[in-house]
Design a protein around this nucleic acid. Structure first.
Length: 258
DNA sequence: ATGTCTCAGGGACTGAGA
C-alpha cells in the first residue's frame, strides 16, 4: 500500500505531470494540495482515465485539496470540524485494506507569510484547531495518516541554511512547537523512521536557482499514527518531478505501508 | 539581490499569494 502527498501548485497546470506520476508510481492514495480550482473544474474524466477515483474540496484561485485513490474512498469529510474556514485546506476519507481500515487526512497548512503577520496568527490558530480535531479523529480511527504540505520544517536538519531561516516563517519556534504538539498526540514523521540522505528537502523556491543549488526545506510530511508507523516500510521524496519543465515548487513524498 | 510562478481582472500589465 503506497500513500503519497504532493503540493502541485495548480492542478490545471500540473495535470499532465500528475497523470505521468500516477502511471509511473501507482500510489493507492495521492493527496494533492493547492489545486487552485473550483470543484466544477476538477479533471474527473482525466483522473478516471488514469484508473483513479477522486474527491476534492476546491475554491477559486487559491488553496484547494484533493484525494486521488485507486479504490473509492468512504466517509469523505471536508475541513476541520468545529473550525469554520472559507479556505479549503483539509479533506479526509477512509479505505479498507488487508490490514484493516485506513483513514487518510490531506492537509494544506497555511503558509503564514511572515512571523507576526495576520496570516501567521491564522496559521497558529489553524494548527491548534487541527490538533484538537485530530485528537478526536485518532480515537475514532487508530490507523490514521495525515499527509500534506505542513509549511513547517520540523528541525534544523530539514533546512538548507538554518541560520538564515532562524525565527523566519516555516521555521519559527511557535510553528515548530505547534507541530510537536500535533505529533505528541501519537504521530510519527514517517520520513525520519528511516536512514535518509543528508540535505533532503521537499520544497525549493522557484527563485535564485534554489533547486539546482538544493536550497530547500522539508515541509511536506507524512505523519502516521502509532499503529500505522509500525507497518511503514519506507518513506521517500521523489525529486524527479521537480526537474520537469514547468515543475511545481514541491516534490511528491511517498510512504509504503504493509 | 523579492531574481519565479500562478491566477484574476481586463484586455497590458499589476497585485496577491506563496
Amino acid at each position: 500500500m503506497k500513500i503519497a502527498t504532493w503540493n502541485v501548485n495548480s492542478l490545471k497546470v500540473r495535470l499532465p505531470q500528475v497523470q505521468d506520476w500516477l502511471a509511473g508510481q501507482r500510489p493507492d492514495v495521492l493527496c494533492l494540495q493547492e489545486i487552485k480550482q473550483e470543484d466544477r473544474d476538477f479533471p474527473l474524466a482525466e483522473i478516471g482515465a488514469a484508473g483513479y477515483h477522486a474527491c476534492f474540496s476546491g475554491q477559486k484561485t487559491y488553496n484547494g485539496v484533493a484525494l486521488i485513490s485507486r479504490d473509492p474512498l468512504s466517509e469523505v469529510v471536508r475541513g476541520i470540524a468545529g473550525f469554520d474556514d472559507v479556505q479549503q485546506r483539509v479533506i479526509s476519507g477512509s479505505l479498507n485494506t488487508a490490514s484493516g481500515p485506513l483513514r487518510v487526512v490531506c492537509v494544506y497548512v497555511p503558509n503564514g507569510q511572515s512571523v507576526g503577520s495576520d496570516k501567521y496568527q491564522y496559521k497558529l490558530r489553524w494548527l491548534a484547531a487541527l490538533t484538537t480535531w485530530l485528537s478526536g479523529e485518532l480515537a475514532k480511527y487508530p490507523r490514521l495518516a495525515v499527509l500534506g504540505d505542513f509549511n513547517i520544517a520540523p528541525e534544523d536538519r530539514d533546512v538548507y541554511d538554518p541560520a538564515a531561516w532562524k525565527d523566519q516563517v516555516l521555521c519559527s519556534a511557535p510553528e515548530r512547537a505547534a507541530l510537536r504538539e500535533l505529533l505528541a498526540l501519537g504521530f510519527v514523521d514517517a520520513y525520519r523512521r528511516f536512514d535518509q540522505p543528508e540535505k533532503s528537502y521537499s520544497w525549493w523556491d522557484y527563485r535564485m536557482m534554489a533547486f539546482r543549488r538544493n536550497r530547500g526545506l522539508r515541509i511536506d510530511l507524512i505523519l502516521l499514527s502509532g499503529l500505522l508507523a509500525d507497518s511503514c516500510q519506507s518513506c521517500t521524496i521523489d525529486k524527479e518531478p521537480r526537474r520537469a519543465e514547468r515543475p511545481s515548487d514541491h516534490a511528491p513524498v511517498s510512504a509504503e505501508l504493509v
